[in-house]
């Protein structure tokens, strides 16, 4: 087995709502290896999105630790996490979350430009060609269809060649044809680049394609915790 890229140990997340403590994640230990495709499944409200957010450093756990590429990121500040996210992580969301004031090409370039990569434009153009959007690269986000937006979001997630990609219900807003196309594209790119993919989904069909399925129920891991 290849080395682990993501290790979480006894992760918990609790929200304070009014005077009440609301546990969302409890005691989650998970190790993800480099190049692995892991799906996180579970019913609505089981904590999939929260787990993804905590693992990726977008949110902070209430307790437990997270190691990303051999570095403990649990106590890092927002500004310490930002460059790590830029270089090590790519994100794909259900609602695409593209910057509306930028066109497709600029959206893809954006993370590379943050890194001051002089080849940002070329890389973004190549990626868009790869996903079949070279003709749409100058189009604004509002002029793209849902499937096209998600392709642009995948390109943006991969522009800096991150070793780890988080995807939260990437096909949730798409029809079945587009869902299949997007998933196969995402998997192709993940394999081409030997990236690790951690994907939250309801879909059994997608889960079947994964190397491993981790199942959540009421904020606890009920299966698949071992790598």
């Amino acid at each position: 087995m290849t080395a682990a890229i993501l290790v979480s140990s006894r992760l918990s997340k609790t929200y304070q709502i009014g005077g009440r403590q609301l546990p969302v994640l409890s005691d989650i230990s998970l190790t993800v290896s480099r190049g692995e495709f892991v799906v996180i499944t579970g019913n609505s409200g089981s904590g999939k999105t929260t787990l993804l957010s905590v693992l990726s450093g977008l949110d902070r756990p209430s307790s437990g630790t997270i190691r990303l590429a051999d570095r403990d990121i649990t106590e890092l500040s927002e500004d310490e996490l930002a460059p790590l996210r830029n270089e090590l992580i790519g994100f794909v969301f259900q609602a695409f979350h593209l910057i509306p004031s930028l066109n497709a090409l600029e959206n893809v370039m954006f993370p590379a430009e943050l890194k001051k990569d002089p080849a940002a434009g070329d890389k973004a153009t190549r990626l868009l060609e790869r996903v079949g959007l070279s003709m749409r690269r100058q189009h604004m986000v509002s002029e793209l269809s849902g499937g096209e937006k998600q392709r642009v979001a995948i390109c943006r997630a991969l522009i800096n060649d991150p070793p780890l990609v988080f995807a939260d219900e990437p096909t949730g807003n798409l029809d079945s044809t587009n869902s299949r196309e997007i998933m196969s594209l995402l998997l192709e790119l993940q394999r081409e680049r030997d990236a690790t993919l951690v994907l939250a989904t309801h879909s059994r069909e997608i889960a079947r394609q994964a190397d491993r399925e981790v199942r959540l129920a009421d904020g606890r891991l009920v299966s698949g915790e071992a790598s």
């Binding site: 993370p111 943050l114 943006r156």
Partner: peptide
Amino acid sequence: LERIRDCAYYKIVGGTTRF
């Protein structure tokens, strides 16, 4: 709302508070 959204997007892809 638009500013919060843009700000969140910048940070998600690695933009610092300074940026």
